[in-house]
Lab assay of single mutants.
Amino acid sequence: TGEEYIAVGDSTAQQVGDLTFKKGEILLVIEKKPDGWWIAKDAKGNEGLVPRTYLEPYS
Protein backbone atom coordinates (compact mmCIF):
# COMPACT_ATOMS: atom_id res chain seq x y z
CA THR A 1 0.00 0.00 0.00
CA GLY A 2 1.04 3.59 -0.48
CA GLU A 3 0.04 6.94 -1.91
CA GLU A 4 -0.39 7.65 -5.62
CA TYR A 5 1.63 10.45 -7.16
CA ILE A 6 1.88 11.68 -10.76
CA ALA A 7 5.24 12.41 -12.36
CA VAL A 8 5.58 16.03 -13.49
CA GLY A 9 8.75 15.32 -15.46
CA ASP A 10 10.93 12.56 -16.89
CA SER A 11 13.62 11.01 -14.68
CA THR A 12 16.26 8.54 -15.82
CA ALA A 13 17.95 6.25 -13.31
CA GLN A 14 21.44 7.56 -12.50
CA GLN A 15 22.53 4.52 -10.50
CA VAL A 16 21.38 1.06 -9.48
CA GLY A 17 18.31 1.34 -7.28
CA ASP A 18 16.85 4.40 -9.02
CA LEU A 19 13.53 4.14 -10.88
CA THR A 20 13.22 5.52 -14.43
CA PHE A 21 9.85 7.13 -15.20
CA LYS A 22 8.18 9.48 -17.68
CA LYS A 23 6.06 12.58 -17.18
CA GLY A 24 2.42 11.61 -16.59
CA GLU A 25 3.15 8.19 -15.07
CA ILE A 26 1.35 7.31 -11.86
CA LEU A 27 3.71 6.02 -9.17
CA LEU A 28 2.83 4.41 -5.86
CA VAL A 29 5.00 5.94 -3.13
CA ILE A 30 5.88 3.29 -0.56
CA GLU A 31 8.24 5.24 1.68
CA LYS A 32 9.04 8.95 2.00
CA LYS A 33 12.67 9.39 3.01
CA PRO A 34 13.77 12.68 4.62
CA ASP A 35 16.62 13.18 2.10
CA GLY A 36 14.12 13.90 -0.71
CA TRP A 37 14.43 10.50 -2.39
CA TRP A 38 11.30 8.40 -2.05
CA ILE A 39 10.80 4.68 -2.69
CA ALA A 40 8.11 4.17 -5.33
CA LYS A 41 6.67 1.49 -7.57
CA ASP A 42 5.50 1.94 -11.17
CA ALA A 43 2.54 0.27 -12.92
CA LYS A 44 4.77 -2.62 -14.07
CA GLY A 45 5.84 -3.39 -10.50
CA ASN A 46 9.35 -1.96 -10.81
CA GLU A 47 10.51 -0.39 -7.56
CA GLY A 48 13.22 2.15 -6.84
CA LEU A 49 14.24 5.57 -5.62
CA VAL A 50 12.63 8.66 -7.16
CA PRO A 51 13.28 12.38 -6.54
CA ARG A 52 10.26 13.84 -4.72
CA THR A 53 10.58 17.11 -6.66
CA TYR A 54 9.34 15.24 -9.76
CA LEU A 55 6.11 14.10 -8.07
CA GLU A 56 2.79 15.71 -7.21
CA PRO A 57 -0.13 14.09 -5.36
CA TYR A 58 -2.51 12.31 -7.72
CA SER A 59 -6.21 12.73 -7.08
Rank of each mutant, 00 (worst) to 15 (best):
L49K: 12
E4H: 13
D35F: 04
A7R: 00
D35T: 07
I30F: 08
R52Q: 15
V8I: 14
Y54N: 07
I26E: 01
K44N: 13
S11M: 14
Y58T: 07
Y5M: 05
A40K: 01
G2M: 12
K22I: 07
Q14N: 12
T53K: 13
S11T: 07
Y54C: 14
V29I: 11
R52M: 15
I30T: 07
G9A: 15
S59I: 13
P34F: 09
P51M: 13
Y5A: 02
K22W: 06
V16G: 09
E47W: 11
T12D: 13
A43N: 10
A7L: 05
E47G: 04
V16N: 10
S59K: 13
E56A: 11
I6V: 09
G17I: 06
L19P: 02
K33V: 06
S11K: 14
P51Y: 15
K32A: 04
I6L: 07
D35G: 13
G17N: 07
V29T: 01
F21R: 00
T12L: 11
I39S: 04
E31D: 10
I39C: 04
S11N: 13
P57D: 04
D18Q: 15
E47A: 09
A43T: 11
T12Y: 13
E25N: 06
D42I: 02
E56P: 01
E3G: 07
K32C: 05
S59W: 11
Q14P: 09
P57Q: 07
D35W: 03
E3I: 09
V16L: 11
G17V: 05
F21Q: 01
V29Y: 00
E31C: 12
P51K: 13
T1W: 13
K23T: 08
A7V: 06
L19R: 01
K41T: 07
K41Q: 10
Q14Y: 10
G45R: 02
K22L: 09
P57H: 07
E47P: 04
D35C: 08
G45C: 05
L55V: 06
P34H: 10
G36H: 04
Y5L: 01
E4P: 14
T12W: 12
D42K: 01
P57R: 09
D18K: 14
I39D: 02
V50T: 03
L55G: 00
W37E: 05
Q15T: 11
G17F: 06
N46R: 08
P51H: 15
G48H: 04
K44Y: 14
G17D: 05
I26R: 05
G48S: 02
I26D: 00
A7G: 03
G45L: 03
W38E: 00
W38S: 00
G17L: 05
A7S: 06
S11W: 15
D18Y: 15
S59D: 12
G48Q: 02
W38Y: 06
G2Q: 09
E47L: 14
G36M: 04
I39H: 07
K23Y: 06
P57C: 07
E31V: 12
I30M: 09
D35A: 03
A13D: 10
Q14C: 13
V16S: 11
G45I: 01
V8Y: 04
K44S: 12
Y54L: 15
D42L: 03
A7D: 01
K23Q: 07
K22S: 08
L55W: 01
Y5N: 01
K41P: 00
T12G: 09
G48L: 04
Q15G: 14
E56Y: 08
L19H: 02
V29H: 00
V50N: 01
G45S: 03
L19T: 01
T53Y: 13
Y5Q: 01
A40C: 15
N46A: 07
F21M: 03
G9H: 15
Y58E: 04
L28V: 10
I6K: 06
P34M: 09
A40P: 00
E25F: 04
L19Q: 00
P57S: 07
Q15S: 13
Y5D: 01
P51E: 14
D42S: 04
I39F: 10
L27F: 06
E4T: 14
Y54G: 06
F21A: 01
I30N: 02
I26M: 06
T1C: 13
W38V: 05
L49P: 05
Y54R: 08
I30L: 12
L55I: 08
K23C: 08
G48T: 02
Q15L: 10
K22D: 03
W37A: 07
L49F: 12
I39P: 01
R52W: 14
D42F: 01
A13I: 08
T20W: 08
P57F: 07
L27R: 00
V50D: 03
K22Q: 08
D10R: 03
E47S: 10
Q15A: 12
T20A: 11
D42N: 11
E4V: 14
E31K: 10
P51F: 15
K33Y: 09
W38N: 00
N46Y: 06
K33F: 10
Y54I: 11
Y54A: 13
Y54W: 09
V50Q: 00
L55T: 01
E4A: 13
D18N: 14
E56H: 08
F21W: 04
E4G: 05
E31L: 14
V8F: 04
D18R: 14
P34K: 10
A40Y: 02
F21I: 07
V50H: 02
F21T: 02
A40W: 02
G36Y: 03
A7Y: 09
T53E: 15
V8N: 09
S59G: 11
T12C: 14
L49I: 08
T20S: 14
L19W: 02
P51T: 07
A43D: 09
K23G: 04
G24W: 05
Y54F: 13
Y54V: 09
E25V: 04
I6Y: 06
T12V: 14
I26T: 04
D18M: 15
D18W: 15
D35Y: 04
V8Q: 06
L28R: 08
Q15H: 13
K33S: 10
V29L: 04
G24K: 02
I6H: 03
T53V: 12
S59F: 13
L28S: 06
A43M: 11
G36F: 04
Y58P: 05
I39A: 04
L55K: 01
G36L: 04
K32W: 04
E3R: 09
N46G: 05
V29S: 00
Q14K: 11
L49Q: 09
L27I: 07
F21Y: 05
K32D: 02
